[in-house]
């Protein structure tokens, strides 16, 4: 897991952590069921406040990306978790909507857009 904090970013630090972790969980960089550093360990590694990492982990847990196991720590949710699925579906729909809009703006017909999608799936 690799988190890079940009101090000058408009985004609060806990959001930066959440975004980066979500991306890495969704694209598999962080494996499912992988154990994450503890809240305090992460704070130490990134040299940020404990409350910030706590907030990030709480938000991620609420959204279903990670789960807290009593006495053991935080783990990445198994992929078949409902919330995660929902989130991934949402991301897909967002992506598709963007693809369709962009394609149409570029002047492509619906058929051409579907062709491009198919090519993408095969490749």
């Amino acid at each position: 897991m690799k988190i890079i904090i940009k101090n000058k970013s408009e985004l609060p630090i806990y959001e930066q952590i959440e975004e980066q972790m979500k991306t890495q969980i969704l694209d598999g960089t962080i494996k499912e069921d992988e154990q994450l550093p503890s809240i305090r360990q992460l704070a130490r590694d990134l040299k940020i406040s404990v409350i910030t990492t706590t907030r990030a982990y709480n938000d991620l847990a609420e959204e279903g990306f990670i789960i807290s196991v009593a006495g053991k720590g935080y783990f990445v949710s198994p992929r078949n978790n409902e919330l995660l699925k929902e989130r991934m579906l949402f991301e897909m729909e967002e992506g598709l909507e963007k693809a369709v809009t962009s394609g149409r703006n570029a002047g492509l017909s619906d058929v051409e857009i579907i062709e491009a999608l198919k090519k993408f799936m095969e490749g």
Binding site: R40, Q41, A43, R44, K47, V50
Partner: peptide
């Protein structure tokens, strides 16, 4: 800051 971070673990 690093020392304090480590301390508060």
């Amino acid at each position: 800051l690093d020392i304090l971070s480590e301390y508060i673990e």
